Simulated assay, not measured.
Amino acid sequence: MPATVPGPRIAIVGGGIGGLAAGAFLRRAGFTATVHEQASALTEVGAGLVMAPNAVRLLRRIGVMAQFLRRAVPLDWGWEFRRWTDGSVLSVEKLSGVCERLYGERTYVVHRADLLDSLKAAVPSEWVRLGARCTSVDVRKDVVLLRFADGSKVEADIVIGADGVHSVVRGAVTEPLPPAYSGICAFRTIVPAQAVPDFALRRAQTLWLGPGRHFVHYPVAGGQAVNVVAFAPAGDYTDESWSSTGTIEEFHAEFSDWDPRVTDLITAGGVPGRWALLDRAPLPRWSRDRVTLLGDAAHPMFPFFAQGAAQSIEDAAVLARCLAAHANDPEQGLKQYEAARIERTTRLQELSHARRDSNHLPDGPEQKARDAALAASDPLVRNGWIYGFDAEEALTS
């Protein structure tokens, strides 16, 4: 790791996956930074996520793989699509050995909190300021002034907004586009391993597809639990907070006529979280002067391609490289970062949006054509532009 030398004062707003990844990659590049997190502790709400090779190779470079592998679950069996009524298998993609051969890394599923713990290991604890809720960002001629809810102020030379879909920093960069109502809500729950049938403990990401809905499950926490997330019509439900909850009855009502294995998992999970998916168009710009955005603050996307966290990590790696390449001109570094990232993340936003429609087709000719295409496709190869991508090497190619 390069020796840390005096440099620009870098403020990262947000201590989630993107914010801590930014801290880790900036540290590797020889910078120092302060992570301002509004919560009183660095935590993530209970949910799982997929770490594909494009993100895993970057985690390896910041030296956190040993920590990561303590709780991450490799997807050996891989991706599996099933039909909603009877669980008949539409498509299976075995990943063990294939991912490594094609892309140099495996694909894993992991609890968000476990990924966050891995990233924390790469960021000095003294860099993290907790209980710091940013309320405004004032871009001045030679400095950026941050104000916080406790009345404190911080001056920074570079500000990185990693503060999520409701980003405060975004207002200093571009005119925020109001979210649109997607008409979809998500239910989520974590089910203890002892409460689920054996088939749900397999090292597979299983997606059940049905009319207007789909249901996903995979093991997390070293196989000690199963992550369940399902998507259904939202009706008039518009609460977007991940801390919101629904009821088992509401969850059951959406999937009552599905395969009993689905409804059994719903029952075993207890009270589910529930949140609305709001649709946000890609931003035309991420940076202004010495302020930039990262992760969901820059490119929030539907979770249907399982790339949200991975793209935050890619952002962090590229941002650190660009700032290091323009150490004497941070504004130019931020411009290079935006130019390097915006086309790729916009494409993923748009593809994630489109997958909502294909996943939720009603039974009929289009659904049968989709299922036939799934059976004949090889998504691991077809999506090589996602999984084979090396965000750092792309800067020099």
Rank of each mutant, 00 (worst) to 15 (best):
A195L: 14
F389Q: 01
G183R: 04
D236L: 10
H252I: 07
A41G: 10
A66F: 00
T346A: 13
S397Q: 13
L278S: 12
P362F: 08
P260R: 06
I17C: 06
S182P: 13
V165T: 14
T238Y: 03
T247S: 15
A369M: 12
G388C: 11
H166L: 04
F304A: 03
A180L: 15
P303Y: 07
Y337D: 02
G270D: 08
S88R: 15
Q224I: 00
V196C: 10
M1A: 14
A316F: 12
G87M: 09
G16S: 15
G333H: 03
V165K: 07
S88D: 12
L277W: 13
D76E: 13
P124E: 01
V216F: 05
K120N: 04
T267L: 11
V262Q: 03
E254Y: 01
S118D: 06
R133E: 13
S312C: 15
F215P: 10
G270E: 07
A306H: 04
A276M: 06
E37Q: 13
F255V: 03
E155Y: 06
A268G: 11
A113N: 12
A41V: 13
A232K: 02
D279I: 01
A297Q: 05
K141E: 14
K368H: 13
K335F: 09
D363S: 14
A324I: 00
R57I: 09
A41R: 14
